[in-house]
């Protein structure tokens, strides 16, 4: 499986196309993410940015083109899907914590059942990551008893417990009350500073300026523009991108 030439890319999408029925959601997507690189994807809603991220761990199936994650090609083969999911963590807009389990059990379920860790090992890892997202004291509560910001930090910790090489964030702060956004972004900035490879779909341009190595602008299923943040924010090449930035940076 490790037949791909570009080994230094953690993620590489080449000419990826996807349709929902007749609707062409992704058009010739070419995107590569180096190990340790932080890529921020932005664009108007319906532009396909979430779909790109969801294709990377096969929550969505792409119909054309190739996707490689850590040198493994993502195909319909359950083994490739399993191997890639083992290396890719995902944080959702709606948190998607398991409401019937305590925070700690949310964190140890994957490591114990999918990785075969002992309860003791899994709990140790779980407490370590709860510490890192700064809510070790909430371990025995149910998700419903936590604020949105705390839930999202638990969700980040849950992904980290699987010790992924890559983290995907699908609008991680869009469902949060404004006062809770920064506590989640702080955790993400720390994660970025520690060298995690990250692909983040977000409208938080302050966060993007701070951590992004590469900005990607999508519209109507296409990558319209990608480049270094400096150039991207100060001198966007395309008219569509300029317009989008002026709209979201206005306030």
């Amino acid at each position: 499986m490790k037949d791909h030439p570009a080994q230094d890319f953690a993620i590489e999408l080449v000419d990826v196309n996807k349709w929902f029925g007749d609707f062409h959601v992704l058009r010739n997507i070419n995107l590569s993410v180096r190990t340790g690189e932080k890529v921020v994807i932005c664009g108007p809603s319906g532009s396909g940015k979430s779909t790109v991220v969801r294709c990377i761990n096969r929550l969505e199936v792409h119909q054309q083109g190739t996707i490689h994650v850590d040198g493994i090609e993502l195909t319909a083969d359950p083994k490739s899907i399993h191997d890639i999911r083992a290396e890719v963590g995902m944080v959702f807009q709606q948190f998607n914590l398991f409401p019937h389990l305590t925070v700690l059990k949310n964190l140890i379920l994957g490591p114990m059942k999918a990785r075969g860790l002992s309860r003791q090992q899994a709990e140790k890892t779980a407490r370590h990551y709860l510490e890192r997202v700064k809510i070790p004291e909430q371990a025995d509560k149910k998700p419903g008893q936590l604020s949105g910001g705390q839930q999202q930090r638990v969700a980040i910790a849950r992904s980290l417990c699987m010790e992924p090489k890559v983290m995907l964030f699908d609008e991680p702060t869009s469902a949060l009350d404004p006062e809770m956004i920064s506590e989640v972004l702080d955790v993400m900035v720390e994660l970025a500073n520690e060298g995690m490879t990250m692909v983040v779909v977000t409208h938080e341009m302050g966060f993007a300026r701070k951590v992004a190595d590469k900005m990607v602008f999508m519209d109507a299923g296409e990558i319209v523009e990608q480049g270094k943040p400096d150039q991207f924010f100060n001198n966007p090449k395309s008219e569509r991108c300029r317009k989008f930035l002026s709209q979201i940076l206005q306030h």
Binding site: N57, G89, M90, N96, F98, L109, K113, A114, S159
Partner: peptide, 23 residues
Amino acid sequence: IPKGQTEAAQTVGLSYAQSMRYV
């Protein structure tokens, strides 16, 4: 049960049977 639950179970590596059983 919201679809996000299955998706979250998949992203933490659970198989179909495991996500049914535990989630």
